[in-house]
């Protein structure tokens, strides 16, 4: 993680690992399946988001699930490296500005069939 300061807003860059899609990731409480990695043009920048779904079928204490969008952030470098296991990684800048988050959440709610939006 790297921090740098631009015009008073703290920006955080993070590495996003491109895992296998459509593969179940299991926990004791349930599982999730990332389905698609998508990129969206927003304010002249490219936003990476992942669409997937989750089932919470064995949690203490309830049953649920969702179809979600995870938004790692603005793409800074797309699949420019690989990690130690050979998986491609991208560099992203997390989205911290509340107005942008609200606007992006609105866009994605209209565009995608999802019930949960989570920003990195």
């Amino acid at each position: 993680m790297a921090f740098f300061q631009t015009s008073g807003v703290l920006k955080v860059r993070r590495i996003y690992t491109h895992e296998d899609l459509n593969k179940e990731v299991r926990s004791i409480a349930g599982y999730y399946i990332p389905e698609e990695e998508k990129r969206l043009n927003y304010n002249g920048r490219e936003v990476l988001y992942v669409i997937g779904h989750a089932a919470i079928d064995n949690s203490c204490c309830g049953v649920g699930g969702c179809r979600y969008a995870l938004i790692p952030g603005y793409v800074v470098a797309w699949k420019n490296k690989t990690d130690e296991t050979g998986k491609p990684v991208s560099e992203v800048e997390t989205i911290v500005d509340e107005d942008s988050k609200t606007e992006l959440a609105g866009i994605l709610k209209e565009k995608e069939t999802i019930t949960q939006i989570e920003f990195w």
Binding site: S27, G30, Y32, V50, G52, A54, C60, Q116
Partner: peptide, 29 residues
């Protein structure tokens, strides 16, 4: 019950169950 290693990336990409607790923050039955 569950015998599986998990990675930080998998945990951080998991959806929320009750914000800010995600799928891997909760135990099962």
């Amino acid at each position: 019950h569950l015998r599986r290693e998990i990675t930080e990336e998998q945990v951080l990409k998991a959806p929320m169950i009750a914000w800010p607790l995600g799928l891997f923050d909760c135990c099962g039955v």
